[in-house]
Simulated scan of single mutants.
Amino acid sequence: KITPIIRIRNNGSNPLSSITLKYRIGNHPEQEYTWTGNIGFLQSKNITLPEYLFTPQNPSTLKIYIDKVNQLQDEYRKNDTLTFQLTDPKTVTTLLNLWIKTDNKPEEITWNIKTIDDSLVASGGPYTEANTLIKETITVESEHCYQFSLYDAGGNGLCCANGLGFFTLFDDKNITIVEGTTFGSEVLAQFYSQSGVGIEDISTQNLFVIPNPAKHLAAINFNMTTMGKVTLNIYDMNGVRVSKTVSKIFPKGQQKLELNVEKMSSGIYLIEMIMPDQKVLRQRLIVL
């Protein structure tokens, strides 16, 4: 069972006195709830939905959408739907990095990190510089659960009518919490913080990309413990391979591959390298 809590922001000129919401998980039956109260222009409010019973799957998709506002159909349907993947929260360290590449309307982007009891830990935005990579560093306490929220007041995420941007939230061990481009008006992600215990350090896998972010050329550096064949693939955020597979024999020792990213669209990519012993190394690549 789950008791969803969502945050509603009024981007219209009229106060909100009632909102009819519908929600479901996967193919389970849809539930309806009508909230009444008052939300003024550009004000926000958390709304707790009634408990929902379902058979868990991993992952399960929760879909919530607004059916009516003030007893009328919503005039702006672009930002009235929220989808959320219900998976076990990722365990990360206490030092987090949030990178946001703004689109042409940076003033629409805001974010926050809160504890599970809704206490504010960190926040940012709205921003003023368009098409700019913004890097935020956040420190959270260990042994706590948190929720990250990213909002777009325009309801179209960081793509595509206002240019192409992206965001990625990851810890100092390079563990990704959430990242993306298209998310409508809001994206949510929960995570659990821990002081590095039991967390895989990707840097020990000897795969580095320099510079990262890259705009022209990126050097993929890796170490070969023995001579053998290495297979390299690059995927976008949708899991689509965007480069030809490189399969080559490398000698033992430190190696470097140069990658021209000038023709790649701005965004986040995943470099996958299959080593001779079939061990798979992965690293994030950000193209500006």
Rank of each mutant, 00 (worst) to 15 (best):
I175N: 12
G12T: 15
K215L: 02
N14K: 08
D74Q: 14
S44A: 10
I64P: 10
I47P: 07
G198K: 11
M224G: 01
I177E: 01
S44W: 06
L188D: 14
N58F: 11
G12M: 15
G267C: 05
T132P: 04
C159T: 15
T225E: 13
I39F: 05
K22E: 13
S193Y: 12
P106I: 04
I199G: 01
I210C: 12
T137I: 08
N212G: 03
I100A: 02
D67V: 09
L150M: 10
D201I: 07
K215Y: 00
T3I: 14
T87P: 02
V209L: 14
K90Y: 07
Q43M: 15
L158W: 11
S149C: 13
F41P: 01
E262P: 02
F170W: 09
G184V: 08
V92H: 03
G26E: 14
I199P: 01
N27H: 09
R282K: 15
E30Q: 13
P59N: 11
I177P: 01
Y23C: 06
R77E: 02
Y151G: 12
N112M: 11
T48W: 01
Q278S: 13
V242Q: 00
A130L: 02
I100W: 05
V261W: 00
W99G: 04
P251M: 07
Q255Y: 09
K252A: 12
I8C: 10
T128M: 09
P276M: 03
D236F: 00
N156C: 04
F84A: 07
L259Y: 05
N260S: 13
L96P: 01
P15L: 07
S195I: 06
Q31C: 11
T226M: 10
L96M: 05
V69H: 00
Y52S: 12
K68M: 04
A219P: 03
E75F: 10
S193E: 13
M227R: 15
E262M: 11
K252D: 07
K263W: 00
K63P: 14
Q31W: 06
T3G: 05
P106Q: 08
V209G: 03
S266L: 06
Q255T: 03
D118Q: 13
I177N: 02
V287L: 00
F148W: 12
Q57D: 13
